[in-house]
Simulated scan of single mutants.
Amino acid sequence: MPLAVQFSEYGTPDVLRVVDVPPLTAGPGQVRLAVRAAGVNPIDWKILRGFMRQVMPVEFPGGLGSDVAGVVDQAGEGVTALNVGDEVLGASLTPSFAQSALADPAALVAKPPSVPWAIAATLSGSGITAWEVLGKLRISRGETLLVHGAAGGVGTFAVQLAVARGARVIGTASERNHEQLRSYGAEPVTYGEGLIDRVRAISPRGVDAVLDTSGRGEIPDSVELAGGPARVLSLVAFDAAGTGIQVHMTEPGAGRHQALADILALMEEGRLQMPIAGTYPLDEVAAALAVSESGHLGGKLVVQPTRHGPL
């Protein structure tokens, strides 16, 4: 029987267990994947702790994870776009912190041979979110974008996608991540008290737009630097929606294939990279979520349910 990470009550990562689960069967219009890697996102520990129960209630026992990369090992009735043996990446219908997962072929794209499994597993969540928010902020060539949490999962993608569009990017991050941000073409600054002065020291007129991925309370400073709330967008400061800023939550829909196509094209051109901060087997998912919740990451965390050669 395949293994999966499950929990029977909301709580800390300590409530997670690796259990045997009945084999999944691909229904009509579905495929089953042998999971090679699954990306860890902040929403995973938020679901576990019950912070999302009003909008994403869990039916216990529940699982975690939605970003996935794997091999199609079963195709349901009516599936023609994918075949058994295809290597794919995208989003799963069932929890991806498991050895097996179901997915809608429309939420998957082919994994290029040049993209390692671990990196492939990070693209659907953080990559698509970054692509979407840059569109919402209307980032264009010659503009200046300030990214809070620039070394995190979404931040790393957003920085590089904005640079590829010809924008100037200023990114807040811990000093240990500054050199990495410079390698992406961004200008790093430390976050915290005095942020406005540090940004204005390198961009006296302020910035054109702000992306907040950190939720450290920078919204007032962001609004001042952007000259108003219209082009300030947060992924986490839902309580600041009343200030006039944009608050974003990624939802399935049109544009996902185009986003992944753009991201993969930049990767294959060598213009976009995603550092992996750590990989974890199923029995160490609790440790991965604890690291994710602590923040200050210099890349993405990945769950590796089975080992099938190089990541």
Rank of each mutant, 00 (worst) to 15 (best):
R182L: 09
G63S: 01
S92R: 04
A107L: 15
V58I: 07
M267W: 12
L3R: 13
E193H: 11
G255I: 11
D283Y: 11
R231S: 11
G185R: 12
T156W: 00
I202H: 11
A261L: 11
L301I: 01
G152S: 04
G39C: 02
V291H: 02
A91H: 07
I276K: 01
L33P: 14
G63W: 07
G85Y: 09
R168Q: 12
G309Q: 05
L108W: 05
L233Y: 07
V247A: 06
A110P: 12
E143W: 12
G194F: 10
F51C: 08
R216P: 03
V154P: 00
E193V: 06
F238H: 11
G78W: 01
E269A: 15
L145V: 10
M52V: 04
A34C: 14
G153P: 00
R216H: 13
E224L: 06
R168C: 10
T190Q: 13
G62N: 01
R138N: 09
N177A: 15
L266E: 02
G194N: 04
T172H: 14
P204T: 04
S292P: 03
Q99G: 14
G90Q: 01
V15I: 08
Q6C: 15
H308L: 13
A201V: 07
A241Q: 11
I276G: 00
V79K: 00
T25V: 15
G29Q: 03
R168D: 13
S203C: 10
P188L: 06
K136E: 14
R198H: 10
